[in-house]
Amino acid sequence: MSFTLTDADSLLGARGFWRETGAWVVGAAFGRDGRGCFFGLGDGTVRIADPADKGAEWRCVQAHQGACLSLAADCAAGALSGGDDGRAVLVAADGGTAELATFGAMRWVEHVAAHPAGVRALACGKTVTLFDGRGERLKALAHPSTVGGIAFDAKGKRIAASHYNGASLWFVAAKEDRPRLLEWKGSHHAITFDPAGEHVVTAMQEPSLHGWRLTDGQHMRMSGYPAKTKSLSFSARGRWLATSGAESVVLWPFFGGGPMGKEPHEIAGGDAVLCTAVACHPQQEVVAAGFADGLVLVSDIASGRVVPIAPPGHGPVSALAWNPAGSHLAFGTETGFAAVVDLSKRG
C-alpha cells in the first residue's frame, strides 16, 4: 500500500466525526437497537456518540473509579462495561447507568460479554459469573486459573473461557455445571467461536493461535505472527478468521479442509506496521482493520480490495466495531482518538 491520505480527503473526513478524549480507548460498541455508539476509556468514563447525528453532543458517563477494562454491546440496547474498580455497569444510550455487579476493591472485571438471547457474562479473576437479561445472577463458573477471555457462541447457548493450558466450554442452561475442557499447554487470551459453533479459537502468549474443532477435538495451530494476536474475528459466514498481530491483516481459511495445511490470506501488508485490531462486517465477507500507526481500512476479503477509512497519525488503533446493520464503523486509539464513520450507501 502506498498512498498518502489526510483527514480531509479520507472517508473519516467526509463521512465521519470524532473526538479527542485524552484517554486510552479500551473498547467500542454500538447499541443493538441502533441507538448510541459507546467508547469505554482508560479514565473510567464511557463516551456515547449518536451515530445518526454527527453534530450532537457526546455524553460522558463516569462508569468506573479507575479504568474501563472491557466494553461490549449489551443484550438488547446500551453497553456493558467492566472496570478495575471491580464493578460491571450497564450504560444506556441516554447516559443512564445501573450497576450489574460488584466484586469489591482490588478486583478487576477484565472481560464482559452479552448476547441478545438475554445472557451476560463477567470474568473476574478465575470466575465467570452469568446474569440474565434482567440482571438476575444465574451462576458462577470456576476455572483453574485466571480467565484470559470469554465468548458466547452465535446462539448464546454456550460460553467459552480461555485460561492457562486451554479453554473451558460451558452450557449456559446446564443443570449441572461441568465444562468441556479444551486442552493445550500455554497461556490463552482472546477467544472466539465461529458462527456455526463448530470451532473455538484462542490467541496465545506465544505469538500464535490455537483452535479446536469441536466435532472431533481436532487441534489447529496457526502460527508465524511477529507479535501477539489480540483481536480475532470470524467473517459473517464463518469462511475466514481475521486476526491482528502481523504486518498485514492475516485471514485463515475455514473451508476446503482449512485452516490445517493452508496458507493464510494476507491483506493490506507492505507497510511494516502491525495490525492491532480487526472486526468483520456483520453480513458481508468484509473486514475492517486498524494498525499501530492509526491507519484504519476496510477490505473486501475475496478481492483484497482496500478502502482506506482513516489516515495514520491518531495513535495505535485499540478498538474497532461495526453496528449491527453494518452501516457504521467505530474506532478508537491508545492515545484517545474516538471516531464514528458512516459507510452506508447513498442513493
Binding site: A23, W24, V26, G42, D43, G44, G66, A67, C68, L69, D84, W108, E110, S145, T146, G148, Y164, N165, K185, G186, S187, M204, Q205, E206
Partner: peptide
C-alpha cells in the same frame, strides 16, 4: 502469582501471567 511456562522448548523460561495482565491493564491509565 500465576507462573506458567512459555512454549519455547525451554523449561526454565517461566513468566508471571498475572503480571502481564495487570501491567497491561495499568497501562490504560
Amino acid at each position: 502469582e500465576e507462573v506458567f511456562e512459555m512454549n519455547n522448548g525451554c523449561v526454565c523460561c517461566t513468566v508471571r501471567g498475572d503480571l502481564v495482565r495487570i501491567l497491561g491493564g495499568l497501562m490504560k491509565r
